[in-house]
Nucleic acid binder design. Structure first.
Lengths: 163, 163
DNA sequence: ACAAATTGGTTGTTGCTGCAACCATCGTGC
DNA sequence: GCACGATGGTTGCAGCAACAACCAATTTGT
């Protein structure tokens, strides 16, 4: 029986293993930091950040869902919880009565603004400061190349630049 | 009020955003592929792979948990499910009667061997083939550097080399 | 030798995500 | 202008993970 898929050679394997470790460790580290310091999930943080930089701090549910790479049911549940905590509110969309807009409240904006510096600092400490300038560019190229394969249309917008 | 944490500049921001996209898209893509083609979670796959390359296809629960970066309760539940599906069995540890060993069954080994080529092929298509040789080395260095910050003792062993 | 502390695992509860079913509104074709 | 499909969103249910509480076996201290 011939091997249709060649196994990974030493360099490929090293790259893959180190990437797997990263995928395993970094997301949970990010979540822990945000949860501990701000009571926010990384996903909730992404939702709030997205709203913050949208016109009128408002976005359609469906747009917000694709921008955060989530299913609509997931977003709906998350928005419900955030609404109960007073960080977000649902507003019926005037142009399309099927649609719902999610809007960041003042309290939500306040919490987000409070959470952001600590998050950036953590990102800097764990990621940015581990790399030199050259590696920063390399990382951008590498991650973009892989992402392009997974999301060719670039529908997933990631986080807006936290600032 | 002075800004204690300098915001990210353009290059830093680009690197971070592209990395976030990767963290968001790749794990779910890996999970979908494995789930669809083999009925295994990525985590279950990691557990089985780890057992496969352990002496006597056996590992202590606690060792297996740290090697897969999981809490002990999580592993215990997963092993219970895998045991119900006949892919793994629990064996009391002779040397320490508190301890439990998890052992890969023949059926488990068979399923794993079946699942592996498709998984490798997917990894190749999405990750490896997106990069050139130079980038492969760069990725190894970058991911290792970040991982070192998150897990200085290197307790997390990642997957053993799938082959 | 025995009490206390530590280690190794399991079980129960709660919270979040995915999927499927569902309802309401909008657009299209006739 | 009305039926039908498509779109936008919510709700209910099932499965998995985190945390805490718990039990059993072992080690430590005296």
């Amino acid at each position: 029986m011939t091997r249709l898929v060649p196994r990974l050679d030493a360099e490929e394997s090293a790259a893959w293993l180190s990437l797997v470790s990263l995928l395993e460790l970094l997301p949970s580290a990010l979540d822990s930091q945000l949860q501990r310091d701000s009571g926010l999930t990384h996903y909730e943080f992404a939702v709030l950040s997205n709203l913050r930089f949208s016109p009128d701090q408002t976005q359609r549910m469906s747009a917000l869902a694709t921008a955060t790479n989530a299913t609509l049911p997931r977003l709906s549940h998350v928005i419900t919880r955030l609404e109960n905590r007073g960080l977000v509110e649902r507003v019926p969309c005037p142009e399309d009565r099927r649609a719902t807009n999610a809007r960041l409240t003042d309290a939500g904006r306040r919490d987000l603004v409070r959470a952001t510096p600590g998050h950036i600092e953590f990102v800097r400490r764990t990621v940015i400061d581990s790399l030199d300038r050259e590696q920063l560019d390399q990382l951008t190229a590498i991650a973009s190349a892989i992402t392009r394969k997974l999301d060719p249309e670039g529908k997933f917008a990631a986080l807006p630049d936290p600032q």
